[in-house]
Amino acid sequence: MESLDDVIDAMIADRVIHRHRRKWLIALALVVVLVVVILFTGGWKEKKGRTVDTVDAPTTFEAGRYEFGVTSAQIIRTPKTKYDPAKARVELSFDVKNIDDEEHKSNSLSGKMVLLVVGGGEDPIESNGATCRGAINWVFVYGLPAESCTTKFEVPANFTGDKLEFGFLAESYDSDIGLLGASEDPYWHNEKAAMVVRVPTTTTTETK
């Protein structure tokens, strides 16, 4: 048998819930709106600023399974033609050596390992990998001397600069956590920023 106290308690609880329900609903709606707004404005990106050293070219350094020797860079402009709009690209000249002491494995340099740092809070531009001896996507052999290569970045047609900054990522040789069934054999992955190189840049105009 319910006592009067219980009934009164239930009534009070009912009132309290009802009194604050609108506030709760508004708070919930606000969270949803916030999520939608953040999603549509390009997500949440943490800008950390630069966490690695910046050095001037020419320089040689090791990053993961490669040794890079950065020499020079060039902005190449292609003027507007009858059929094509004006274009520009940045070409970085660098030496690449495979120093993979762990696996002794041939490997080609992935485009995302070398970046053109635009600055001003914009995302860096990815390269197109390494082009050596006229062949794109060169496969670097462990044990051979460094190869002179170039890499290309697509930039807006009005891109300028006389000292460009290039970021180099380095992979590390470690294993995944085997707890969820992944193989615990180490391999090259987990690329992280290793070095930013400031390279004096010349600008040329290409004519066909």
């Binding site: 002794h104 494995k105 462990y142």
Partner: peptide
């Protein structure tokens, strides 16, 4: 025998 692994050229 040294455990080196070569891969085909990209061409």
């Amino acid at each position: 025998d040294d455990g080196t692994e070569y891969r085909p050229v990209a061409a």
